[in-house]
Design a protein around this nucleic acid. Structure first.
Length: 417
DNA sequence: TCTGGGGTCCTAGGACCC
DNA sequence: TCTGGGGTCCTAGGACCC
């Protein structure tokens, strides 16, 4: 037998569990996981959505991503606690430490999900993967206080589907020979990569379960859904063969972006430019920290009616300079904004390249100086905190001088950079 | 004050070139 | 005296994930 053995580890209601564990460790008398509770953003700053829910909260029909007010309507005595991203990073790291005792091929998929390639542990562990997974799950529960679901199979897709089959605190296998029995009866929406839009399309084609999808003529799927059709058909048959990408070697960073919902509607160019600057400061810092330059700048706008659009521009010369990116971002904004009140702004850079052989533009003599300034500011912020230096324009403004991620405390979340 | 923030990949149309 | 045809680059937008 030549097949691989892959585990997928998924923290149950991650943010909520971590808040609950932290509270218990600090003297709380109740366990948030046993009550209708959520982790929710701050409504006053218009970040009021549900980030995680307890199992009792789920019974009220509360869904991740829905507005906190709407969740409260469903359950009037709902407990709402704020997110604590630094805590989440610590919890995630602690879990990783345990996982790495069992395999050197651990891929961090997100803050609360990992893949492990356990193939080479075959001989070492005697091949009883269910037992090993149970041991890992129990160790995390006993040593760290939160529960996980572990899925076991021969590839990442099936392992991930498996860990979804039972929660909390469970180990589930989904080997190829179990697909028909365990996966095909599920609604097609449960398949990885089948979102709302695809579900609608598939339903309109008479496809409701993963089994229906698996038994549809692939040429028909490809005709209707292009390359997505091919991928979904393969997934419905459990076919997927990407490698577990050991952590540390981040596969490849394609772009760096930050965005923010502003606590009030922005209705003038000056304020919008300030927000863009606060975002570019963060993006630029991350770019330089990764020793990248970018060749593409993108600005996105979301109006108070929640309509989004974006504009992008390819640069003549790659740059990592805050001011250069900022100027381009302003140009993009000015040429795309239609004048509606703005709720949310984003800046993203991509088309990255290394910064070791920077091509100096003959026309920009200030560029070297700008680079030195950027580096100096980065260093001061690293050393003394992100708010130790900021642009005078933010004094007496309602805006934070830096925006994106959790800038108050390095590092920026959801990014290794 | 009802709807966050960070990503990736794909598609389609237009410009432009030979 | 219709108007081919391929290729690449650029841009906007949509879909998905956590």
């Amino acid at each position: 037998m030549n097949h691989r053995i892959i585990f997928h580890i998924d923290v149950n209601s991650a943010f909520l569990s971590w808040n609950a564990v932290y509270a218990l460790q600090h003297g709380a008398k109740v366990d948030l996981r046993e009550l209708p509770s959520i982790v929710g953003g701050n409504q006053a700053t218009r970040h009021g959505i549900v980030l995680a829910k307890s199992i009792p909260a789920k019974k009220y029909g509360i869904q991740t991503g829905e507005p906190v007010v709407s969740a409260k309507k469903k359950c009037p005595n709902l407990i709402v606690t704020p997110p604590d991203y630094l805590l989440y990073m610590r919890c995630s790291e602690a879990m990783l430490e345990i996982l790495r005792e069992y395999s050197d091929k651990v891929q961090v998929f997100s803050i609360d999900e990992c893949f492990m390639d356990m193939t080479c542990m075959r001989r070492l562990l005697g091949g009883d993967y269910y037992k090993i997974a149970t041991e890992i799950k129990d160790r995390i529960k006993n040593e760290l206080g939160f529960t996980v679901s572990i899925g076991i199979s021969t590839n990442k897709l099936l392992a991930k589907m498996a860990s979804d089959l039972k929660k909390p605190d469970a180990v589930v296998t989904l080997f190829p020979e179990e697909i028909k029995e365990k996966m095909w009866p599920l609604p097609v929406r449960d398949l990885y990569m089948c979102g709302e839009a695809t579900e609608k399309k598939l339903n309109s084609m008479g496809i409701y379960t993963i089994g229906d999808l698996a038994q549809t003529e692939p040429r028909y799927l490809i005709y209707k859904l292009k390359s997505w059709g091919q991928m979904l058909y393969s997934f419905a048959h459990g076919i997927e063969n990407s490698e577990v990408n050991p952590n540390g070697s981040i596969p490849y960073i394609k772009g760096i972006g930050n965005s923010c919902t502003i606590s009030f509607d922005v209705e003038d160019y000056e304020t919008a430019h300030k927000v863009l600057l606060s975002l570019v400061e963060t993006v630029g810092m991350r770019l330089r920290r990764g020793n990248f330059c970018c060749r593409l700048v993108q600005v996105s706008i979301k109006t108070n009616k929640l309509i989004s659009y974006s504009h992008q521009k390819k640069l003549e010369v790659p740059t990592d300079c805050t001011n250069a990116i900022y100027e381009e971002a302003c140009r993009l904004f000015d040429s795309s904004w239609k004048g509606e009140p703005i709720r949310h702004l984003g800046v993203r850079v991509s088309d990255l390249c290394g910064n070791d052989f920077i091509q100096l533009s003959l026309f920009d003599k200030n560029w070297e100086k700008q680079r030195l300034i950027d580096r100096a500011v980065d260093e001061i912020r690293m050393k003394y905190g992100s708010h130790s230096v900021f642009r005078a324009g933010f004094l007496h403004s309602r805006l934070a001088p830096l925006q994106g991620g959790i800038v108050e405390d390095f590092p920026v979340m959801s990014s290794i950079l």
